[in-house]
């Protein structure tokens, strides 16, 4: 499966996750967010960028519990909560945010 923006093709798996992390760009993120019915704000981008950095450092998409804790540490305790992250990504921060960030589905995410 795939989608196309401005002549560039992005391949995805059957669940809509990008296959090649390196193909990701902001345009792809905007498209994937739209598919997920997420209106991207600065707060959304902050989480997306955090996830990409995390993946770059550790080569995995973090489990939600780990993401929440790590975000709290980096961006402040008010953002390091399930409530905050679910408000941004109502269908599951790990799942939705990872998809928009071009990451694979988190290990152990059902």
């Amino acid at each position: 499966m795939s989608f196309e923006i401005n002549g560039k093709t992005y391949e995805t798996d059957e669940e809509g996750y990008l296959i090649n992390l390196s193909e990701w760009d902001e345009e792809a993120a905007k498209y994937l967010a739209k598919e997920e019915k997420v209106d991207m704000t600065d707060n959304h981008w902050e989480v997306i960028n955090f996830l990409r950095e995390y993946y770059n450092d550790y080569q995995i998409a973090p489990a939600i519990r780990v993401l929440t804790k790590a975000i709290g540490k980096k961006l402040g305790p008010e953002k390091g909560s399930n409530k905050y992250l679910y408000e941004l990504f109502p269908y599951g921060p790990a799942k939705q945010a990872c998809k928009i960030a071009g990451l694979p589905k988190p290990t152990g995410c059902i």
Binding site: Q59, I60, V66, K69
Partner: peptide, 14 residues
């Protein structure tokens, strides 16, 4: 092949 050695550094966060 994916280099998964950095993932061992993530274990602390888990």
């Amino acid at each position: 092949v994916k280099n998964f050695s950095p993932t061992y550094r993530a274990l602390e966060g888990y």
